[in-house]
Design a binder for these strands. Structure first.
Lengths: 228, 228
DNA sequence: TGTACATCAGTGAACGCGCGTTCACTGATGTAC
DNA sequence: TGTACATCAGTGAACGCGCGTTCACTGATGTAC
């Protein structure tokens, strides 16, 4: 069974075909995640949607978990570039930039709640926690958010007492040696705040209250900027 | 099939037995939720744990969803009283009170992450969204948090522009006519912030970063109080 | 206090279903001579 | 340009499993006389 394209070989027509089918399978998987419940990701159902039988998928993915992992990696990439786009389009003012990124974060999550869940929910069932490939995949996302907060943080700011070393190490481990622990801590707080609002919104808590949380996001981001 | 105790009849020995077994079933269900994955709640497995066969459970619960709903209702109650306890033990200073409640919130979620998920995750699979019994069950939880924030809010504070009416209505619908829209909005923000940190912590995001979020909670709650 | 009867907890077999995954196989497709 | 062969996509049957739920039933338990 040939799982990956041999390195060094030029991609032939068969490789192009493989790549295309792989993409179709992923698309079908996402569609199913979107429609079906939380983890209604069934290989047989995906296969049917693509017009194949279940076992045929094993030509393209080693197993269910591999497929899932790829979806997670893709989602990390997409979210990161959505945020990067928002940052680029608002390059002048740092506050405007941060606000734009925060709103892009929410917008992405609302547009693709199932993918957002895929990213930040716990390892579903017997899923390997933090493989190296997943850590790598989260790098660009971290880069954008850290950068946006960096631009606004006061140079004399400090991380919460007792956690400086932890944040320092975290940054070093991911190759962000130039980011201070204070910035890392504030970025984490921003992330947590956005994540809180986003998950409540995604899980339909606000709609059941009859509340449009848009104003809450705005107020919370304003608070955050003020607290820097 | 007699599902509920007839109203008006005094509870006989059989009723007491029923109540006890129902409790054992719930306990087994929680244990399974805690150990097993997210939604590994299997009726057959629960029955086995209690020492019965699967179909016997139908003497005590109409079906899987009813059991789940009861677990949710219980969880609402437990969380609410954990917060109320924290508030009572710190009755003097309003800031101390709010801080204590916030930490109790985190503590409860960490102690019982599976029950926390049960409360705030989306309706799992084909679950009836917001039944009236669930809305009722969330009442005490709202009461505690609203009260704690009320004590600290400045009388001239306003809700974010454009959402006053929504918060007002929300409060009225739940019988909190004396709570202002501003307090409701601030309480929601507090909730969202705590929820963000808690879910990240529960889903193991902080541990994978090598960070103890305790200091983040403290800093965030301090920020919140300052912003009132 | 003793007996007769209704209630009801729990069983075991069966229902239909879907799951991920393996295996031996067929038939089309690209490649090398 | 034409033929022979190796590659590989996809099939269909099967594996063993677990799920929620129904049904007819047995046997113990509480209750009424």
């Amino acid at each position: 069974m040939t799982m990956t394209t041999e390195s060094g070989t030029k991609p032939g027509p068969r490789d192009r075909f493989r790549a295309q089918v792989r993409q179709e399978v992923k698309t079908a998987a996402l569609r199913q995640l979107a429609e079906g419940g939380p983890e209604a990701l069934s290989l047989n159902a995906i296969a049917k949607q693509v017009g194949m039988t279940g076992p045929a998928l094993y030509r393209y993915f080693a197993n269910r978990d591999s497929l899932l992992t790829e979806l997670v990696i893709d989602a990390y990439g997409d979210l990161a570039s959505a945020l990067a786009d928002a940052a680029d389009k608002n390059a002048k003012d740092a506050v405007v930039r941060l606000t734009a990124v925060a709103h892009a974060y929410r917008a992405w999550a609302l547009a693709e709640p199932h993918r957002y869940r895929l990213l930040f929910r716990a390892p579903l069932a017997g899923y390997d926690a933090q493989s190296t490939s997943l850590v790598e995949a989260s790098q660009p996302l971290m880069a954008v958010t850290l950068e946006v907060v960096s631009a606004l943080a006061k140079p004399d700011a400090a991380a919460p007492e007792g956690s400086e070393a932890q944040f320092q190490k975290w940054m070093e481990r991911h190759g962000f040696e130039d980011v201070t622990a204070a910035v890392a801590a504030r970025t984490t707080i921003l992330w947590a705040r956005l994540h809180g609002l986003v998950t409540l919104e995604i899980e339909a808590n606000f709609s059941s209250m009859g509340i449009d949380p848009t104003h809450l996001y705005e107020a919370d981001v304003r608070d955050f900027v003020r607290s820097l």
